[in-house]
Design a protein around this nucleic acid. Structure first.
Length: 908
RNA sequence: GGGCGCGUAGCUCAGCGGAAGAGCACUGCCUUCACACGGCAGGGGUCGCAGGUUCGAACCCUGCCGCGCCCACCA
């Protein structure tokens, strides 16, 4: 016998082990099985499960379990990302904590060895945590972006793209992270508004020259006042960069400066003369209209400098300290950039060239991992020609070969792809795929998959063996993740899996990595496989806390999924996340919600317990088209209806709708009504009805378990097994059972109408009893007046049941209503409850009066509608007809209640 | 500056052209032989505001008002 509650702690582990041992997570080898593949967004090897992962992977598991049950060869390809910066950071921190020397002292080889050690020991905990959630990925196929096969794929891709001219080396400004001392991509830069200052400097004109600078204008724009200046005013938020200025630019149309364009100013502190030039970039209406041009440390200035042939002065080293360079005044060399900033301001001030300082909100770039201010730096890096590779990737979505759900994300994808910049893929780190490029002494580059191949290429070029040195840099982590949909399936080997599962079916991810990951997979997948990497991209919500703030450890508002699993069970968490995964809205998750769905599980558990107590054993030969009892035919039809909805909604990625339909069916249909309605049959003397009901109940419960399995895998598997202890032996575990595909022919309109009639009769009765304060224990008579033959027959057929649910002393059809009774209308009939002495009839008079008034108001509204010629003319016929019926019903009900009211008044 | 989205019951949210919904919270009654992680019943909404389209609008259009998020090189 089942306990009254499910114990997830004990069951989850046991069931997980059974599943894994069964081998069912691997795709079925059944011939002809249609392939269905999801590649997991590989979590960082350093990661621990947070609620976003829980949502992401729950939805993937729902899809995989659903398709597996539908008989497809369902492959959920798991794995881990080596997460370059994040992992290097963790291990460096660990070295520091152990009091060990830093990575540079350790040396590259040794350090990488340490990272691998760390990975083997504590990396990838997150996959174990996913197993606790019930994720049914094919764990035997686990891949790692740094494993041999994937590294091989990375090298091959890099070399081929290079040969095709789609990867190239270039010197340009990059986002430099002075903490990690590496370049990063645009995407890894987070722009944040912070409080800063705007320093206004004066750069003196060469040879003490002067010019008239307008200070006031009249209404027509004529200069009415001016002052003589021997300087040009510039402003900056980053004073230390002035040491690298190569020019001052003004707009060509700016009359104020026309007379000094072409002349030179003294760059203070640096003691260099730099020209005043014109360029379209300066905005005459902003600041002084004159811009200092620091080509090597500002993205805008860089463009201006390039256009005007202005020299670039690199000011800083890799750590963001002022460089030991001739053009940097000795005093500042070696200073940190912020130290230099203070010194420059003080020195400018000392020279009397500090005009004024104003506080200002400025947008500053920060490294997303390091949190330090990013410095634009002029360096040599490797770039992917993303603008070119984006073209077919854009086309694929335009043509619908890959479809985003919700569709609106396609706009975001297009927006980004159409404005994409070259992708800087080299990183000055050690942990990652080392770039397969070798240099000779002359600076020639040989990009090959192996050192031997590079040597051979060098030999071919020079006609002899030459010394080569390998590029020190590694690739952006996202470079290898971009290959994930085909590299994990075995590419570049021509594997059976690759043939079968590429293109994959569905990618499930949050919007925040559309650019980082989805776009790159599209570009690389199309290029190397000739086909899109996935047909559907389902973009799900972000999980936020109950007040809508992003969950984060530092805020302390994050719900830890594993704590929630411990507390409520994995099924409750999964069902909650699925039920809340409405498209296009973030999920604000609060714990009571999870508790509620845990309770839902308990409800189902107890329904199963009830079935078990009543010997509802499943029957192998049961044919759902055969039950005779109306209530059984009805629940079979309801099951078919629900199965169809759940199937349709999962297919459309409307997980919340699927979960909602199941919730309603299990609780409000199966538990609230079906089980109550069959109690008399299960306790009755009609053996054949009893047997049929037991089998129907068992059949329905089994379908519930199947339909619910993708959402609540543990409890359903447990019940499947426990309920299978009676009846024929179950051949398979639930996770490989066939998904219910029930024909609409199982829906019996007659049964629906009959059961609906009973439900309304009972519900109305209960409502009235409650309103009239009739104690539940009080049994009262029920008279069905003016009933049609059909209704009378129904009453007769279900009398025992109706009496039980309505708590009636007895029930009967009657010709005429008794004098004093409480009344409601049921279709053509009037239900009268003679309650003389039990209730206060004055209250009933009032109640009826109100009800009649409400109905009459309603009828008036409908009459108004029907009286509108436009409505009759333009609205569809069925809508008009519906309104006519409504009016007739309302009027008839009102008339019956009015009659009842008259009788009551006479009796009082 | 560009783009996306959201304002519906106390809270969290479905619904997105034909009679205002769910869960939680709240109120009353109930230890009814599956379940108090339960049962039965109930209260509660001018669907942000203003116009427009329509026979009909929470739903479509326009404009406002609030609130998020993403992208962006104003020194």
């Amino acid at each position: 016998m089942l306990d009254t509650t499910f114990d997830p702690k004990a069951a989850e582990q046991r069931i997980s082990a059974l599943w894994e041992r069964s081998g069912a997570f691997a795709p079925t080898k059944k011939p002809g099985a249609e392939p269905y593949c999801i590649v997991i967004p590989p979590p960082n090897v350093t990661g621990t499960l947070h609620i976003g992962h829980a949502l992401n992977n729950t939805l993937q598991d729902v899809l995989i379990r659903f398709e597996r049950m539908r008989g497809k060869a369902a492959l959920w390809q798991p794995g881990l990302d080596h997460a370059g910066i994040a992992t290097q950071m963790v291990v460096e921190r660990q070295l520091a904590a152990e009091g060990n020397i830093g990575r540079r002292e350790l040396g590259r080889e040794e350090f990488i060895g340490r990272v691998w050690q760390w990975k083997e020991k504590s990396g990838g905990d997150i996959l174990k945590q996913l197993k606790r959630l019930g994720c049914s990925a094919d764990w035997s196929r686990e891949r790692f972006t740094m494993d041999e096969g994937l590294s091989n794929a990375v090298r091959k891709v890099f070399v081929q793209l290079h040969k095709e001219g789609l990867i190239y080396r270039d010197k340009r400004l990059v986002n430099w992270d002075p903490h990690f001392e590496t370049a990063i991509s645009d995407l890894e830069v987070v722009n944040t508004e912070v409080d800063g200052f705007f320093w206004h400097f004066k750069y003196p004109l060469e040879n003490g020259e002067t010019y008239e600078f307008p200070t006031a204008y009249d209404e027509d724009g004529n200069v009415t006042a001016s002052e003589t200046r021997n300087y040009i005013a510039i402003a900056t938020t980053r004073p230390e960069t002035m040491l690298g200025d190569g020019a001052v630019a003004v707009h060509p149309s700016d009359k104020r400066y026309a007379s000094i364009v072409g002349k030179r100013v003294l760059l203070p502190l640096a003691d260099r003369y730099i020209p005043i030039i014109t360029d379209e970039y300066p905005d005459p209406d902003f600041g002084s209209g004159a811009v200092k041009i620091t080509g090597a440390h500002d993205f805008n200035d860089y463009q201006v400098a390039r256009r005007n042939d202005i020299p670039l002065y690199v000011l800083m080293d890799t750590k963001g300290r002022m460089a030991d360079e001739e053009h940097v005044p000795e005093k500042y060399r070696g200073m940190d950039r912020y130290e230099a900033r203070a010194a420059v301001v003080a020195d400018i001030d000392a020279l009397g060239l500090l005009d004024f300082v104003e506080p200002k909100k400025i947008t500053q770039p920060f490294g997303d991992r390091s949190g330090v201010v990013i410095e634009p730096m002029l360096t040599d890096q490797w770039y992917v020609d993303a603008p070119k590779m984006a073209i077919p990737a854009i086309k694929a979505v335009e043509e619908g070969r890959t479809v985003f759900t919700p569709k609106s994300w396609e706009k975001t994808y297009f927006e980004w792809m159409r404005n994409i910049e070259p992708w800087c893929v080299s990183r000055q780190l050690w942990w990652g795929h080392r770039i397969p490029a070798w240099y000779d002494a002359d600076g020639n580059i040989f990009v090959e998959e192996t050192e031997d191949a590079a040597k051979a290429a060098a030999r071919a070029k020079h006609g002899k063996d030459v010394e080569l040195t390998r590029d020190e840099d590694v690739l952006d982590t996202w470079f290898s993740s971009g290959l994930w949909p085909f590299s994990t399936l075995g590419w570049p080997e021509d594997t059976a899996e690759l043939k079968k599962f590429y293109p994959t079916a569905t990618l499930v991810t949050a919007f925040d990595i559309i650019f980082f990951w989805v776009a790159r997979m599209m570009m690389l997948g199309i290029h190397f496989m000739g086909e899109v990497p996935f047909k559907d991209v389902y973009i799900h919500a972000l999980v936020r806390d109950a007040s809508g703030a992003k969950m984060s450890k530092s805020k302390g508002n994050s719900l830890d999924p594993l704590t929630l699993v411990d507390k409520y069970g994995a099924d409750a968490l999964r069902f909650t996340l699925a039920a809340m995964a409405a498209q296009g809205r973030d999920i604000k998750l609060a714990e009571p919600r999870i508790e509620g769905y845990r309770n839902f599980g308990t409800k189902l558990w107890n329904a199963a317990r009830f079935c078990q107590m009543n010997e509802c054993a499943w029957w192998e030969e049961f044919d759902p088209a055969t039950p005779q009892q109306t209530v059984n035919r009805w629940i079979v039809g309801e099951t078919a209806r629900t199965a169809a909805i759940v199937t349709k909604e999962i297919e459309a990625f409307r997980f919340n709708e699927a979960a909602g339909a199941l919730y309603k069916f299990v609780w409000n249909v199966f538990c609230d009504w079906y089980l109550e309605l069959v109690k008399p049959l299960l306790n009755g003397d009609d053996e054949s009805a009893k047997v049929e009901t037991r089998r129907t109940a068992a059949w329905t419960l089994d379908r519930i378990l199947m339909l619910l399995h993708p959402f609540m895998p543990f409890m359903t598997e447990e019940l499947w097994s426990r309920l299978g202890e009676s009846g024929p032996k179950r051949a398979h575990m639930l996770l490989v059972q066939q998904w219910p595909d029930l024909p609409a022919s199982l829906i019996d309109d007659g049964a629906d109408a009959e059961i609906d009639w009973i439900i309304r009769l009972v519900s109305e009765t209960r409502a009235l009893r409650s309103e009239m304060n009739v104690p539940p224990a009080t049994r009262i008579p029920m008279l069905l007046v003016g009933a049609s033959a059909e209704s009378a027959a129904r009453l007769e057929r279900y009398q025992g049941l109706i009496d039980r649910l309505g708590r009636f002393e007895y029930s009967t059809s009657a010709e005429a209503p008794p004098q004093g009774s409480v009344t409601f209308v049921l279709d053509e009939a009037t239900v009268a409850l003679p309650l003389e002495g039990v209730v206060d009839f004055k209250a009933e008079v009032v109640r009826l009066g109100k009800e009649i008034a409400r109905l009459d108001g309603e009828a008036g509204k409908i009459r108004g509608k029907l009286g509108n010629a436009q409505f009759i003319e333009r609205a569809p016929e069925e809508v008009v007809e519906e309104q006519r019926e409504r009016l007739a019903d309302t009027e008839a009900t009102s008339a019956k209640l009015s009659a009842a009211l008259e009788r009551l008044k006479a009796a009082v």
